[in-house]
Amino acid sequence: MSAESQPDVTDDIDFVAERDSEEFQELRKTHRSFVFPMAIFFLVWYFAYVLLADYFHDFMSIKVFGNINMGILLGLLQFVSTFVITALYVQFSNNKLDPKASKIRERLEKEGVN
């Protein structure tokens, strides 16, 4: 019901042909080549941290400076990596994804009106 109930420009678009088009496949590849490796990276890094905190107490208890130990340091690094990945993704989307996506969208919306 999400598609039929709205008067919409997409009724006349041949989505199968569009999906198979080189332009769209390129966009899809660009998108996946960033989000998949990044998702795997942060999940591995997060669970490495979880396992360290869960099973390697001695390592996490090593004092680095003052009362700050490896545990606190690595925990704070999780915050830093989250912020950095967020910033990287925004930059990647603005520069690489958005131009490709809007080009296809604008063309399709124009075709749909005709």
Binding site: A3, D8, V9, T10, I13, F15, V16, E18, R19, D20, F24, L27, R28, H31, A101, S102, I104, R105, L108, E109, G112
Partner: peptide, 14 residues
């Protein structure tokens, strides 16, 4: 529908 969902999800058309 499957093709439509894929195109829509990445381009935002419609």
């Amino acid at each position: 529908k499957q093709a439509e969902m894929e195109v829509r999800s990445l381009t935002g058309v419609g």
